[in-house]
Nucleic acid binder design. Structure first.
Lengths: 159, 159
DNA sequence: GATATTATCTCGTTCATCGAGATTATCGTT
DNA sequence: AACGATAATCTCGATGAACGAGATAATATC
């Protein structure tokens, strides 16, 4: 907490935020008999539904960084809990479309709703220019992490 | 990605960053035969070492949100990999101090070093005032998440 | 010095995740 | 219009991370 370099302080602060959000999700998972991965999956699926992006097991597995066997088991779990449904794609019948149920939307809202509301409320203390700066910052950090991830994977394959 | 509410966009962007960082850690874990939890533990332990905060199994378990049995198993794993050592506290002999080895520091640096460097470099494109705004923002979001987590836990116990 | 509290660990069970490979559907070639 | 090649998903068996319940040991409290 007493980094000389002010920039390092920010790196750790960013990480502290991710730690808190992860713990928040884990707390929710435990309370509802879900596993952390289930919650992460739910987030991505709800996002996809809201953006009208078609979700498939393959896509979901890629989002979460788990292999195909685990993804099948994951979708099985969510289906058993009636949070998602599997539907064969009519155009490409190798594909399975994962759709979220109303129950999942309700559950997700009960979970994220209060948190999001609080966050938005907290953002009200920032003016437009500040928020634009923050957006620029977060976009930069996301890209650094995404690029770093690719480099890590590819670089290690090369040794 | 096309939220009407600009603030919601920022919430999702913040989450996108945490998703990327989690995937980065998972990637690293897989490459080194570690589990995601091991990596998370390592981060906290390296932080504690740098800040000279004494780390114990109980403290570590609280940081990660896992129970005492899992924490014991976790420390066993890390000890077997020679990333940490257990040392009985001389003053309170119920306590075990977890200290990181040089190997852990090296490993952690090889992992986070490049990412942190890239992040710091990217921060150079922001002036002092911008970074102060971002710091204020991240502190606010961290507190919202931390408070929300407590409310979630306490509120559900009350029903 | 008995009792309660705190910190860590042990045991047995459950189930998420993995690697390898099977299955089914589609695409491009000839 | 049959062919191997590629793609998407699923099955199987094995491994081990995480949990709950409770044991053990040291310290604090009365």
């Amino acid at each position: 907490m007493d980094d000389r370099e002010p920039d390092l302080q920010l790196v750790h602060l960013l990480r502290a935020v991710t730690v808190e959000l992860d713990l928040f999700a884990a707390e929710f998972a435990g309370l509802h008999g879900l596993h952390p991965t289930d919650v992460r999956a739910l987030i991505h699926l709800l996002d996809a539904a809201r953006a009208d992006t078609p979700a498939t097991p393959g896509w979901l597995g890629a989002q979460l960084g788990v292999n195909s066997a685990s993804t099948t088991a994951l979708v099985d779990r969510l289906e058993r809990l009636e949070l998602v449904r599997r539907e064969r794609d009519t155009h490409d019948r190798r594909r399975v479309r994962i759709t979220v149920t109303d129950r999942a939307v309700t559950l997700g809202w009960s979970f994220f709703g209060p948190l999001i509301s609080e966050m938005v409320a907290s953002m009200r203390t920032f003016d437009e220019e500040d928020l634009a700066t923050v957006r620029r910052f977060l976009l930069a950090m996301r890209d650094v992490a995404a690029t770093g991830r690719r480099n890590q994977r590819d670089g290690s394959a090369g040794r």
